[in-house]
């Protein structure tokens, strides 16, 4: 990593997103900043509703109608995606940034064949039908789907096959960045292992950069280089895997690890985190984790902690400031 500027494929600065609902404005992301190095896999973890999907959609500018990006920059290869015209953004989608959606069950169109749905993106790049057909075979082979099944419809595929078809589709145009939002959540362990294996292998072959959203810390430990721990729309901690698992800085990361079964140490007591994540339209003043934090101090209730540099990464906690 000689040139740091080059090495970061993606850099997010101060990204803030609101959801405007009829009654209130919910701040789904607040001041989210992180960097992703070219060729690395970033794991994004956090409880349900903490804003993982929102973050991924905001990067692609695909938020639902109610979602608004209020502030921030998304630098991709040094270009701010949030400043691009809709047309320029559109031409980047799938060519450079592809996404595998949470629950690919419904992410494929039920009335179009799998082949058609992959071909569609290939033809945007190159209108030659023969080369597109060849590429479809290649892609399906890469993810382990027989080419005799390419003319079938999504409902004829199993869940795992659909997920793999989705991955094949994501890779169709050789994107630089692949966002995978819980690509394995609905699948059994065997299929999950296969798909993660596939992602790792593809990363090695194609030098992909991957953002992997998951609930499963085991998955993070297995495949990711760095991890982003989110809590209630903010970043709690962002650090390399080693630091996250061996020396977590943020109390929330610590609690999350405590709530996760560790197979190497049999029969340890699982510690759930008492309480619930904050309501986004009624955020507590100060640190969002304070009401559930076991190490809470006075200042936590008053002031929002900012993301500060700790040994190997970043964390947002007042305890670390006072050190």
């Amino acid at each position: 990593m000689s040139n740091k500027q080059q090495a970061n494929l993606l850099e997010v600065r101060g990204l803030t997103v609101d959801y405007l609902t009829e009654k209130a404005k919910a701040r789904a992301l607040e001041n989210v900043s992180f960097k992703v190095a070219q060729g690395s896999i970033l794991g994004i973890v956090g409880e349900s509703g903490c804003g993982k999907t929102t973050l991924m959609l905001a990067l692609l500018r695909l938020l639902p109608q109610a979602g608004r990006i209020v502030a921030g920059e998304v630098l991709f290869n040094g270009r701010d995606l949030l400043r691009l015209s809709e047309n320029d953004m559109r031409s980047l989608r799938w060519q450079d940034l592809a996404i595998i959606f949470q629950g690919a069950m419904n992410a494929l169109n039920p009335v179009k064949t799998v082949e058609d749905q992959i071909t569609e993106v290939l033809l945007r790049q190159n209108p030659n039908k023969t080369s597109a057909a060849k590429r479809v075979d290649e892609l399906l082979e890469m993810v382990g789907i027989g080419r005799n099944r390419k003319g079938q419809y999504p409902h004829q595929f199993s869940g795992g096959m659909r997920q793999r078809a989705m991955i094949a589709m994501a890779l169709a145009c050789n994107p630089k960045l692949v966002i995978a939002d819980e690509p394995t959540t609905a699948l059994d362990v065997m299929v999950q292992a296969q798909i993660l294996e596939l992602l790792l292998q593809l990363r090695a072959e194609l030098d992909l950069t991957i953002l992997l959203v998951t609930h499963d810390l085991g998955v993070v430990a297995e495949v990711c280089d760095t991890a982003l721990v989110m809590y209630g729309g903010v970043i709690a901690e962002h650090a390399p895997i080693d630091a996250i698992f061996n020396a977590p800085s943020h109390p929330y990361t610590q609690a999350l690890l405590g709530a996760f079964p560790d197979h190497t140490k049999p029969k340890t007591q699982l510690l759930s985190i008492p309480g619930y994540p904050p309501k986004l339209d009624a955020l507590p003043p100060g640190c969002r984790f304070a009401p559930r934090c076991s190490q809470v101090i006075d200042i936590c209730q008053l002031k929002t902690p900012s993301l500060i540099k700790v040994s190997d990464g970043f964390a947002s906690c007042h305890l670390l400031e006072t050190l």
Binding site: L60, Q95, F101, A107, P110
Partner: peptide, 25 residues
């Protein structure tokens, strides 16, 4: 539907999304 979001993420134009993905369904 989710597949419309997929179509948008694929960078298809509004016209293509309506014609190829929404209309038939």
């Amino acid at each position: 539907e989710d597949y419309i979001l997929t179509a948008k993420a694929k960078g298809l134009s509004t016209f293509q999304i309506l014609k190829d993905h929404a209309l038939r369904n």
